[in-house]
Write a protein that binds this DNA or RNA. Structure first.
Lengths: 232, 232
DNA sequence: CGGTGCGTTGACATTTCTCAACTGTTGTGG
DNA sequence: CCACAACAGTTGAGAAATGTCAACGCACCG
């Protein structure tokens, strides 16, 4: 049951870093790994919240289905992010669906039961949870800001600029952690609009794209588009 | 310094309800009331996070200024809501601006210093904070959903349906907690678009408006608009 | 009583969506 | 290992939604 590797991996999470070794080991007991194929379900809305998760590898999409059957993407989560802590801490059931976006997605699943027992008895874990929830708040706030920016154009520029870059040298190179259609869903625009925007920017020499790879040729202009909604 | 009234008022907050009386009194010590005029600043972005707040009366707007000088409303907070807890718990400075929207807004201000001392020593308070932060998560998630709904039309319908109603009897009567221009900012649309949508719905007999008062005449249709983006 | 700002309305420009067709890519079973 | 199905991505044309700019009435406040 006990897995020393899991404890070691948990230590690398920002909000667990400060936790003492014994607590991490206690957490790791009752945790297990899950490897998922693209599209595989982690949990569904309405299901009892029996565990929360850490993304080790790949991307997970958290979404809801709106009344008209559309999928509302709430979040795309990459490596090192935790999710569903709030559900485990304060809700009987999951409030959304979660599926693996990329193939070979690896998660650490932390069972609710043992976790809650620890949470109730160990105040250090409560502090870690507060910091973890705060990180969620920050990221959701950014999401609200991102969506509230009026134009789809500015939203896309905004998103690209926040994407972690690959190379410090030369032109800015970015790599999408998921398919373009997922990016479109994230930005609340249609795939067609995304495609057209990228083409226009490419024609204007602002960037070059090849699959999921983006090479930003004129970062200054991209910033201007994100900020002032300057045209291209 | 000690104010029994404040302690009594804190007890009515959802996440403080479970706290024992001695802890509430300790919290109330070091808290003070603030009454604000419309537009008065509670705190500004970048300022040291020296306190968090409880809304007793009125509405507070939390917003950021984007690079192009526009105001991005992150949240409108009504009676009973707390805000800036996350800032006090995990950040050196406030990450956004907060101002009173309505005149005569009353807040309870809870100083960070004493609060953090309590937080670190009393595990019950940590649990209360986790529940408070979770409530924020839920409300931000709703906000993301609200904004991600493609059309402004559906967003408005969605918002009206979530607004607490006044009368159980007869037609649904709602009252906006702030001016229409604030509603427009909240929905990320222009005041002109808001005005035109309301006029169209009024002409169609869907609702009646008078200032901030809304009388919903055809709730079913409004739900359909929010869900399927049915036309009017 | 005059200003200041909210709300409304009109005309027009622009953005984005929808629908439809087509191409390229990927993964899989034969 | 190939052929084909399924799906991602692109492109075009036209429709619909929303923003912009401008003007004006109206209420509230000093």
């Amino acid at each position: 049951m006990f897995d020393a590797t899991i404890a070691a991996e948990l230590r690398f999470l920002p909000h667990f870093r400060a936790l003492p070794a014994d607590l991490l080991q206690a957490l790791a007991t009752g945790a297990r790994r899950r490897t998922l194929a693209a599209g595989e379900v982690v949990f569904s809305e309405g299901e009892p919240a029996r565990a929360f998760y850490v993304v080790r590898q790949g991307t997970v999409k958290v979404y809801r289905i709106s009344a008209d059957g559309r999928e509302q993407v709430l979040h795309h989560l990459g490596e090192g992010r935790t999710f569903a802590e709030a559900a485990v801490l304060t809700m009987p059931v999951y409030p959304a669906h979660a599926v693996a976006v990329t193939g070979g997605t690896e998660l650490i699943e932390i069972g609710a039961e043992r976790f809650l027992a620890l949470f109730r008895t160990d105040p250090r874990l409560a502090a870690a949870m507060v910091s973890s929830l705060s990180m969620w708040l920050i990221s959701l706030t950014e999401r609200v800001e991102e969506l509230a920016v009026a134009s789809a154009t500015a939203r896309l520029a905004h998103y690209l600029l926040r994407l972690p870059s690959k190379l410090a040298q030369g032109p800015l190179v970015l790599e999408l952690p998921f398919a373009k259609k997922d990016l479109a869903a994230h930005l609340a625009i249609t795939p067609e609009t995304l495609s057209r925007l990228l083409r226009r920017w490419q024609d204007a020499g602002l960037l070059r794209t090849e699959g999921r790879r983006f090479e930003i040729l004129d970062e200054r202009l991209l910033v201007a588009i994100a900020d002032r909604d300057e045209k291209v």
